[in-house]
Design a protein around this nucleic acid. Structure first.
Lengths: 211, 211
DNA sequence: GTTAATTTGTAACCCTAGTTACATAAAATG
DNA sequence: CATTTTATGTAACTAGGGTTACAAATTAAC
């Protein structure tokens, strides 16, 4: 039953034998929107393969301050998880489902075994690391080089892209959390975007117009 | 001749056979301080293993703005290089020798081969990715959550650690570049640190006192 | 040793974005 | 439908840090 879903996303990535192993060993999991899949400091015993939906990955500092790092989409896996599994260290990030998601959980033990056995798995793991490093660089560019208005715009576009909708469900406060800013600042900048005709603001939602 | 240097840093990491391969194939390279080893947009054909010295890794945005991401020390390799070699993409970062360095260059072709052949190489590559991800998280914490005075202090400590000296050779302008700030701001904050008794400022150098 | 180039110190100013405070509006709850 | 709760709008203020401008000090160059 798993394998049909699996093949849609991963058949051109993984070799046949590996797909079969995954479908035997992996545990299919349905998670609804807004669920915390992982929090900082937690140990990780299994690794998720994302079949459907969107997960947002956040960084927290000691004082509970928060910042969105990037979104994971179908076909992605969490490099942080990989990283933590290998090193047997605690998670450094927080993961929350942005939409309803379907994922396959793989026990850690298999990971190293498969690295030896399957070339496609090796490539997948290395690609994941590569992709995640690139997303981290984006995150750094954003906070280091951009001003808040630009960051906000980028955030809205990205969120629209991953959810596949021009209408975003979010309060100004939630956006402020993701961008590590304050509600007042976000309201201010959103208002400016509305005046300039880029968006339309309603309670709990924002409609992207000419972006 | 290479192998003696090699064994000092990597004998407990790599298996014997791999060490021999590296010493046969790798090209030993001595680089003096302040040399640009890699710039943004460059293609990478070989991968460095750091035997000695310190390399600083910088991020540039389109307008030439710059930010220090982290330092590489002996025993490290550049995960970005790994990443770029694999994906055959351009470099996203800039690398400059912070001190005189000794490194071994490995041709890209070997990398994938060794991933299959040597467990120790696999672990090394995965560990490198892990370490680099952690350093990227530090960089993000710094720019996202900290104020400039804290960042400056962290920078001074880190630089002192990697160079192994309490006396740092740097102008305020150079520090400003690394932190993506301006000379005036850095001078201002350094002065404050001096008044508080943490450092001693001289032309072209800063002495760390009670840090 | 005189001149030029670098480096540092400091004042004055400005802008972004964070904070506080309060009003209004829309939904949820009873 | 009256009352909370939640979300948004806006003004006024503050602070961090970026910019400009210029002086002083140190070093390098001739």
């Amino acid at each position: 039953m798993i394998i049909s879903e699996l093949e849609k996303q991963y058949s051109y990535i993984f070799e046949k034998d590996l797909l079969i192993e995954i479908s035997k060993i992996g545990i299919l999991k349905e998670v609804s929107e807004g669920v915390e899949l992982m929090r900082v400091g937690q140990y990780i015993k299994s690794m998720p393969l994302l079949l459907n939906g969107v997960i947002k990955i956040l960084r927290n500092d000691e004082d509970g301050e928060e910042l969105l790092l990037y979104f994971l989409e179908k076909g992605d896996t969490c490099a942080m998880t990989l990283s933590c599994c290998m090193g047997d260290t605690k998670s450094e990030i927080r993961a929350i489902t942005e939409t309803q998601t379907t994922l396959i959980m793989i026990p850690v033990e298999k990971m190293e075994l498969w690295l030896m056995k399957y070339k496609s798995w090796r490539n997948f793991v290395l690609d994941s690391y590569h992709n995640r490093l690139m997303e981290m660089l984006n995150a750094i560019d954003s906070v280091a080089f951009k001003k808040m208005d630009e960051r906000l715009l980028g955030y809205l576009k990205e969120k629209s892209k991953v959810t596949g909708s021009k209408i975003l469900q979010a309060t100004h406060q939630e956006i402020a959390f993701d961008l590590h800013s304050s509600r007042v600042v976000i309201s201010r900048l959103l208002k400016a975007l509305e005046k300039e005709g880029s968006i339309e603001i309603s309670r709990n939602s924002i409609k992207l117009l000419k972006l």
